[in-house]
Design a protein around this nucleic acid. Structure first.
Length: 394
DNA sequence: ACTCTGTATCAAGACGGT
DNA sequence: ATAATTGATACAGAGT
DNA sequence: ACCGTCC
């Protein structure tokens, strides 16, 4: 469920914290992506008709592979450097919420059976979507695919969103791309929504800057976390009668959940019992993540052509020609991206620090990259911090 | 009147040929 | 045994 | 841009 009403709250109260961007502006940027969420969407939509999905000869689902393969090529072709982050064990506090969702899905499963019996097509459609689940196998399939594609994979110890935020805070990645507003609560410094939409000509990318969000809301980070808990998150029930507006007002007025609770009119509002807001707070502020110094340097390497052919064509019945053509695109994209990073670096710093001159580069695509570099220009020196690997070991 | 919350409902990818 | 979405939107209804 | 297909 993310954080209830947070998008609107930010839009209304922190104007300027969100910028519209173009997909292309992230050329050369390392971007952390929550893999489980992507897989879920692919399973819902890729080649699904009723409860049928794309499958191989053995009847195993392949929709997630199809979706992940195409999308990742697309991302790499745009010069982005994706890091896919997979979920680990959910925290105990989330178990109750998960149980609720499980129950909801059980209901949907029953409704699906009924819909199938009565031949109600629309309902079959509806309930099929609701009964989709991402299995361990789906996750393993995608990790294998991504490794063969030469794309880095991170296995989070717990929540993927928390791990993404940690990578972002430690400047291991430039931004986190997700549809889940929790990312901000976990403290992602730069957060992208609708990253994929512009490619299908729908919405612009929305880039959230957490510092400006805080500034606009008039809160510090601790207070922002408290606000999110009060609005409603995965870890706590809400206080009936308090929504986003009231939550913001109260946190602004009192400064912390403790003081809000002290001053709360108990006749008017009933606080759930128990209401483990302190644990929730801890999960947002000190989630279980890989310590940044233990995160290896990410590398985007050449695809393993034969491995990919084996996995997709031999094991999963993908069309050989399509796969081979896609792998070619992949190789081209990889080459372009590695030289493009260099060039966009030049573009950014050309006026100030243009000391290196040995760019062994640039033929065909120079014009395009100039444009990209110019667009990206504003203030990025910080994230350039460690493009090479040496610095941090231990 | 207005503001806010709670509930229900919906949609969700990407390619290639035309 | 091993999976547990999400946010936007529209509308109803409660409270101020 | 639309639409069938991807497996």
């Amino acid at each position: 469920m993310g954080i209830k009403g947070l998008t609107k709250l930010i839009a209304d109260n922190a104007h300027g914290a969100v910028k519209e961007q173009k997909f292309e502006n992230y050329f050369g940027r390392k971007i952390a992506i929550d893999a489980s969420m992507s897989i879920y969407q692919f399973l819902i939509v890729v080649g699904r008709s009723g409860s049928e999905l794309l499958t191989n000869d053995a009847g195993e689902v392949t929709s997630h592979l199809q979706g992940m393969f195409n999308r990742t090529i697309r991302v790499l072709e745009a010069g982005l450097k994706p890091v896919y982050v997979f979920d680990g064990q959910p925290p105990d506090l989330k178990k109750r919420e998960l149980a609720k969702r499980f129950a909801r899905r059980e209901d949907a499963a029953e409704d699906l059976v009924t819909a199938k019996e009565t031949g109600n097509e629309a309902d079959v459609e509806k309930y099929s979507k609701k009964t989709v689940k991402v299995t361990k196998q789906h996750n393993e399939d995608c990790r294998k695919l991504l490794r063969l594609m030469g794309v880095p994979v991170v296995e989070a110890p717990s929540e993927a969103e928390a791990e993404c935020a940690s990578l972002c805070k430690a400047e291991k990645v430039f931004a986190v791309a997700s549809e889940d507003m929790d990312s901000l609560t976990y403290g992602s410094t730069r957060f992208l929504r609708h990253l994929m939409e512009p490619t299908s000509r729908k919405l612009p990318v929305l880039e959230f800057d957490i510092a400006k969000v805080l500034e606009g809301l008039g809160l510090n980070m601790d207070q922002f976390v408290d606000l999110c808990i009060l609005c409603g998150c995965d870890y706590c029930d809400t206080i009936r009668g308090i929504g986003p507006q009231t939550a913001l007002k109260m946190i602004r007025q009192h400064g912390s959940l403790e003081i809000v609770l002290e001053n709360l009119n108990k006749d008017r509002y009933q606080v759930p019992d128990p209401w483990p807001y302190q644990e929730a707070r801890r999960l947002f502020k000190e989630p279980l993540v890989t310590p940044p110094e233990k995160v290896p340097e990410f590398k985007w390497t050449a695809p393993d052509t034969e491995g990919l052919r084996q996995l997709l064509v031999e094991e999963n019945g993908f069309n050989n020609d399509r796969v081979m053509k896609a792998i070619e695109k992949l190789k081209v994209a990889k080459n372009k991206a590695s030289q493009g990073r260099l060039e966009s670096f030049f573009g950014v710093s050309s006026s100030s620090s243009n000391k290196r001159k040995e760019a062994p580069d640039s033929e065909a695509s120079a014009g395009k990259q100039v444009k990209t570099a110019a667009a990206v220009k504003p203030a990025k020196a910080a994230s350039k911090k460690g493009p090479a690997k040496g610095g941090k070991k231990k």
